[in-house]
Amino acid sequence: MTTPALPSTARIGLSRGALELKGYFRETSAVVFTLAMPVILMLIFGSIFKGEVGHTGVDFRQYFAAGIIASGIMSTTFVSLGVSIAQERDDGTLKRLYGTPMPKAAYFIGKTISALVLSLLETLLLFVLGNVLFGLKPPSTPERWLTFAWVFVAGVAVCTLLGIAISSVPRSGRGAAAVLNLPYLVLQFISGVYFTFGDLPSGVRQVGAIFPLKWMCQGLRSALLPDTLLAAEPAHAWEHGRTGLVLAAWGVAGLALCMTTFRWKRRRDG
C-alpha cells in the first residue's frame, strides 16, 4: 500500500494563515485594539491638530495620516504577533504544535500571512479615512507607487520578525500586551507620528532614527506627500537608500533574534 504524500510546508502554512485570520476575527477585543485603535487615533488627533507643516503647503493632518499608516502596520505585526504568540506559549498551544508532525516553518508562514493580510486591511482602511477626512492622495507616479510598495513590504517583514522575536520577552501571556505596547507607544512619539519629526529635540531625533518606525513613516511620506515637504525633513531629502539599509539591518537582526531566542515552551516547562 502506498503511503499518501504529506501536504507541503507551503500548503500547511497557507492553511495555518487562514486559521489564524478566522480565529482573529472571532476575537472582538483583538479586532478593536489592533485594527480600530489606529483609526480612533486618526479621528481624534486629526480633529485636534490643524495647520500647515512649516511653510511647505502640506496640511499637518496629511503628514499625521501618513505616520498613522506606518504605525498601523506596526500594530498589526509587532504588537499583535508578539501578544498572540506569547499567549499561545502560555496556554500550551505552542507546546502541543511542537509535538505534532506539522513542519515548524508552517507555523511562522501562517503567522506571516495573517500579519500581511491584516496590515493590508489596516493600511487600506486608514488610507480611505485619510483621503476622505484630510485629503490624503494616493501616490501620483509609478515611482511613488513603487516606493509605497517596497516600504510597506519591508515594514511588514521587519515588524513581523521583531514581533516573533519579542514574543519571548513577556513572562506570561497576560502581561504580553503591556510589555509590547510600551515600546510601541514610545516609538510613535519619537518617530514622527504625532509630531513633525524635524520639530523634535535633536537627541530625541537621534534615538528615533535608530528604530524602523521612523524610517517607515518617512518612506510613506515620500510616497504620499509632495516634495515641498522636504523643507521640513531634517536631511532635506527622502533618504530612500538609508531607509532601505536601516530596514534591511533590522530585518537581519530580527531574523537572528527569532532563530536564537524563540521558545516553544514556557520557561517553567524547561
Rank of each mutant, 00 (worst) to 15 (best):
T112S: 15
S80A: 15
V156D: 05
P183L: 10
F148W: 08
S202Y: 08
A5H: 04
P170Y: 05
N181C: 07
H55R: 14
A30L: 04
G67V: 11
S119C: 11
L94C: 09
M102E: 15
R11T: 15
V32E: 06
S84W: 02
L247R: 05
Q62Y: 10
L94W: 11
L161R: 05
S114D: 13
C159K: 11
S172V: 07
D199Y: 14
A86W: 00
V156K: 00
I113H: 00
R242P: 06
G51S: 15
A149P: 01
F108M: 09
P183F: 02
A248M: 13
P201N: 11
A106F: 01
R263A: 10
I166N: 10
F134S: 10
M216K: 03
L220S: 09
G67D: 07
T243R: 12
L182P: 05
L162W: 14
T147C: 06
A154L: 13
G23S: 08
F25E: 12
A70Q: 02
V153C: 12
G13R: 00
G110R: 03
K137A: 15
K22S: 07
R16E: 14
A149Y: 00
A231W: 03
E88N: 14
R268Y: 14
D269G: 01
V58P: 14
R11H: 14
Y63W: 04
W215S: 11
G198H: 04
M259L: 15
R266A: 04
G23Q: 06
G17F: 00
K111Y: 02
L180K: 02
G241W: 00
G203W: 14
L220H: 04
L14M: 13
D227S: 10
I85S: 00
R16A: 15
G208Q: 12
L97N: 06
N131K: 12
A157F: 14
R266S: 08
L224F: 14
F195R: 13
R89W: 01
G110Y: 06
S172A: 10
M216A: 11
G219H: 00
